[in-house]
């Protein structure tokens, strides 16, 4: 069973990024289970979302160790320390998150801002996770999911920046 997830803060679109990833993997024919944890506020509070997927039916989606974890905010990291401690490939924003042991710092927010896609920071994170997962056909599937939602142009641009960032970092 494979997995990927996102940690951040309310308003960053963590749940949406998780839903797009889940939707893309569903389109590719995988068994997918998606879970998220968020608060009652529109902005603020730790938010965590992840997807597990497999070619066989998923017995248990409640896991502590993720294969890929992208962290976009310190609040999320603090709240879910058990997940951060056990996950394998951890990428975190170097400005918004304090250094994570065994994690890879990246200028996610800075790059998003530079390219005018800060509003779609979550899609940059999704691009990073996608690239690291390296599932065959994932980019086309993500494109399809995003086409069915609002702000396609902005989202796909941000997603591609994420792909490139992860490519450059050679994770």
């Amino acid at each position: 069973m494979r997995s990927a997830g996102f940690l951040g803060i309310g308003g960053q679109g963590i749940v949406f990024a998780t839903t797009v990833l889940g939707g893309a993997l569903y389109r590719l024919g995988y068994y997918v289970a998606q879970l998220q944890n968020y608060g009652a506020s529109v902005r603020g509070g730790a938010v965590y979302g992840y997807v597990v997927f497999d070619e066989d039916e998923i017995v248990n989606p409640f896991i502590e160790e993720l294969e890929v974890l992208v962290i976009l905010h310190e609040q999320g990291r603090r709240r879910w320390e058990n997940i951060v401690r056990k996950s394998k490939k951890i990428i975190y924003d170097k400005d918004l998150v304090k250094p994570v042991e065994n994690g890879i710092p990246m200028s996610i927010a800075e790059e998003a801002d530079k390219h005018g896609v800060y509003r779609a920071l979550n899609m940059v994170a999704l691009g990073i996770a996608s690239r690291i997962l390296g599932v065959k056909g994932i980019d086309e599937a993500v494109d399809e999911v995003l086409r069915s939602r609002k702000n396609y142009e902005l989202n796909i641009k941000a997603y591609e920046i994420g792909l490139e960032l992860a490519g450059r970092a050679r994770i």
Partner: peptide, 9 residues
């Protein structure tokens, strides 16, 4: 809540 808000095939 896990069942209600979770997504699955």
């Amino acid at each position: 809540e896990f069942i209600g808000h979770g997504r699955e095939i």
